[in-house]
Design a binder for these strands. Structure first.
Lengths: 302, 302
DNA sequence: TGAGGGCATAAGCTGGCTTTATGAGTAGTG
DNA sequence: CACTACTCATAAAGCCAGCTTATGCCCTCA
């Protein structure tokens, strides 16, 4: 693999500024207009689009004296670009929440899975409605979330798992499901019938460590029988092991959505095992969320 | 506060090179090692990580004389970064396929929706197994796909919709579903019961133009009754209208996955209407795909 | 025919990222 | 105990991408 000159992605993919510019051109139908919107000059926009076209080897916009429209290829590229920009927006709100310290107006504590996969989206939506809300975010396990809430160091918490920590009220805001995944080459990926619970129980699996929410749900569903091939301490490590073909893994559906659509992993249907778990918003008993916390809570309910 | 200087995303989110570097550091546990992998020097990596930390206002890695590990915040940031990099990888393979012209070893023709949302992932997987396969991609509607295949200008095609163009053999590779979506504020988003088919039929909707695959499926499902509020000629335009709150829209589940998880749109359950449609791989009758086309076809089957 | 909007080109500047060169801390080893 | 091998940080100097300003051409519309 990586033969010859495997130049990094960054050399083959335009930078975020150029992608934003392309989206603006697509929306406004004019290089100069897009430039104005981004606060740069028209020649800068012109040259940037041109160098992006050189880099990709494809004409992206049709220039005419009355404006610019995307070519067919340009439309396709713009849609791919949009997905990068959306991921960057999620990064941005997440990072901003992480930076803002305890003087923030809304302090959120969340379990890792929720903080990684759901919160950025919610914060993006919250910012759309309440642009001035400063949010801070702390990520930890369920116990840590409970502790922060009870010490009045957080206004609203999010946890996953089967039980609600004592002293907290909660409401179910979404459902998650654990699924079995393998690399595309694995024999299970060619099965025609769903996997039986017994098969899953006797096969060594790549798992999160005992005590994690994920492991807890799986052990309960299988009657405490899950057999580890390896035990790893982060979702990311489990994914990496599964992608590399080490064996089947059991992971939150949320955590592997990207890998499934990229076909780095495939999902193996399982019969007779209930691997659903609730995702809950939590707060100290009696202290119903108000203000921005209430807004965020409303956003999260499907 | 958009007030003051609402600097663009590109100023608040590190560039792709920095994100890749961060992922390498996370994986290898060493700044120098990551630098070596990316073909830059250790001081460059050091300074780049440091300036990323300055930009985000958060410490990302714990340096020690025996290596570097991610901080808690760093782990979270790294996972958000990974999603940007994955979107960039999809962009990259898509763009590469778009650039390679008709001398490519594998020529693919696909409908817009499939080209935008699924093909990049498939090509990524294909490249993992067959790194040297050069792929070219043409996107158009079903008729254009059929034309290219029959003129021997493509080796494998992908279409969505209810019918298979004549002269082509096909196999169903996945199922898509049209769903009803609205902006989060819309009254329908607070419904407790699923929408009935009749309600959908009498409500003016944001739709693709007549003749598109999406519209065809919807009209059939509703008995030709879909009532347009506006008709737009691209999926992206429909999404933009729906996000801005113009009304309910009907779109492929594939097309709105990101918007749903970002909560820019919410999905409205519908009862009694079957909006499923098949996604098919197609090829000229009798000419079963061989070589790389066969590999790609295998990859796409769930 | 003149005004206005759209785009391209050229020249010069600047800032960020890079490399090279060096120093300092820690761990393992004979 | 000192030597080696690994880690990371700092400083100085060079390069290049992208920016701005200044200009010119093309087209459309009044």
């Amino acid at each position: 693999m990586s033969s010859a000159v495997t130049t990094s992605l960054a050399h083959r993919v335009p930078d975020l500024g150029a992608l934003e510019l392309l989206l603006a051109v697509a929306r406004l139908g004019s290089l100069g207009g897009a430039a104005r919107e981004l606060g740069i000059t028209q020649p800068a926009a012109s040259s940037r689009i041109r160098s992006m076209e050189r880099q990709l080897g494809v004409a992206l916009v049709d220039r005419s004296p009355r404006g610019s429209r995307l070519t067919d290829a340009g439309a396709l590229v713009t849609d791919w670009a949009r997905r990068i920009v959306e991921a960057a927006e999620a990064f941005d709100v997440g990072a901003q929440a992480l930076r803002d310290r305890r003087d923030s107006r809304l302090r959120v504590a969340a379990s890792m899975t929720i903080a990684e996969y759901l919160l950025p989206g919610w914060l993006l939506a919250l910012r759309a409605g309440r642009p001035d809300t400063a949010v801070s975010l702390h990520a930890g396990n369920s116990a840590a979330v409970a502790e922060r809430l009870l010490a009045d160091e957080a206004d609203l918490g999010f946890v996953e798992g089967l039980t609600v920590p004592t002293g907290l009220d909660s409401v179910v805001i979404a459902h998650d499901r654990l699924i079995v995944v393998t690399a595309p080459g694995h024999p299970w990926s060619r099965r025609r019938r769903p996997l039986a619970a017994e098969e899953l129980a006797v096969t060594p699996l790549i798992l999160r460590e005992k005590g994690s929410g994920t492991r807890q749900v799986l052990d309960t569903a299988l009657g405490g029988l899950a057999r580890p091939l390896i035990e790893l301490s982060s979702t990311t490590a489990v994914k990496a092991a599964a992608v590399s073909g080490a064996g089947p893994a059991v992971l939150s559906e949320l955590a592997v959505r990207e890998e499934l659509s990229m076909r780095r992993l495939v999902s193996i249907p399982v019969a007779d095992v209930s691997l659903a778990r609730d995702l809950r918003a939590v707060w100290p008993t009696g202290h119903r969320p108000v203000g921005p916390a209430r807004d965020l809570l409303h956003l999260t309910r499907v």
